[in-house]
Amino acid sequence: MEPSIIDFIYKRKQLLVEKWLEEVESVTQDSAITRIPEDIYSETNREFIDVIVNTLHVSPEEAKERLRSFVERLIHIGWPLSYFTRGLQAFRRVILEEMKENTQAEQAFSTFGEVENWIDGIVNQLVDEYTGSWENTLNLQKLALKELSAPLIPVFSHISVMPLIGTIDTERAKLIMENLLEGIIEHRSQVVLIDITGVPVVDTMVAHHIIQAAEAVRLVGAECILVGIRPEIAQTIVNLGIDLGKFPTKSTLRKGIESGLEVTNKKIVEIE
C-alpha cells in the first residue's frame, strides 16, 4: 500500500479507532454478541482493531500469522463470524468517511481501491479460518456418526448382535454390510442378529439392503436372524410385497438370541 495512505491512517489512528468503536457498537447490537460480558467485548474490540492496523506495518506472513492466532482463539470460544465481517465493514466505512473529508478527488479513487484490497484480504482470511474450523468440526462429527453407525457386538461365543438405529441410506447400508462381514470373521460368529427396533421406516430400499446383507452373511458362512420387527414394520413389509421368507425373523431380540442359541447347540439354564 502506498506510504501516504499508511501515514494517513497512522496519523488518525486514535480518531479512527474511536469512530470505529462507536460504529461497531451499533452494528453488533442485534447479534449473539449481547450475551458476552461488556469488558471482554470491549477488550476484544481493542485487540481486533490493533490486529487490523498492525497488518499495515509488518510483513504479510507475519500479519497473517497474527490474525490467525487471534481468530483461532475467538473461534475457540465461539465468537460469531458476523462480528468480524461487520466490524471490518464498519472499519472500512470509517476510513473512507475520514478520507472523503481530507483528500482530493483524484486521489480518492486510488485510495479507495487500496483500502478495499486491504480489507478484502483480511475478510478472506477470516472466512477461510472460520470455514476451515467448521469443516473440521463437520468431519469429526461425520466420523463419530460413522463409528456409532453400525457396531457389531459379540454377546455369546458365536453369537453377535448388530443393533441398527436411525434411517438407513445406501451409504450406511454399505458400511453396515462391511462391518457385519468383517465382524463375523473377527469374532468367528455363526449367528448374527440384526436388530431393527430403532429403524423408523422400512421401505423397499431398506429391505433390499437388509436382504443383501443377509445373503452376504450366508456366503461368508454365518446365519442371519432379523429381530425387532415391530407390528407396523411387519405391516409395511407385507403391504409392499417384500419377501423376507428366506431368512428367519423374530419379533424381539430375546427370541432371536434364544433361537441363535438353539442353532449353536447351546442353552441357558438356571443354576440350582
Partner: peptide, 22 residues
C-alpha cells in the same frame, strides 16, 4: 472373504443352494 461376498451379492449371484461355513 467379505469383499468377495459383497462382489457376489452386487452381481446378483447368491449361490443359494450352496451350504457355506466360516
Amino acid at each position: 472373504q467379505p469383499a468377495v461376498a459383497i462382489t457376489l451379492i452386487d452381481m446378483g449371484i447368491k449361490l443359494e443352494e450352496v451350504p457355506t461355513a466360516l
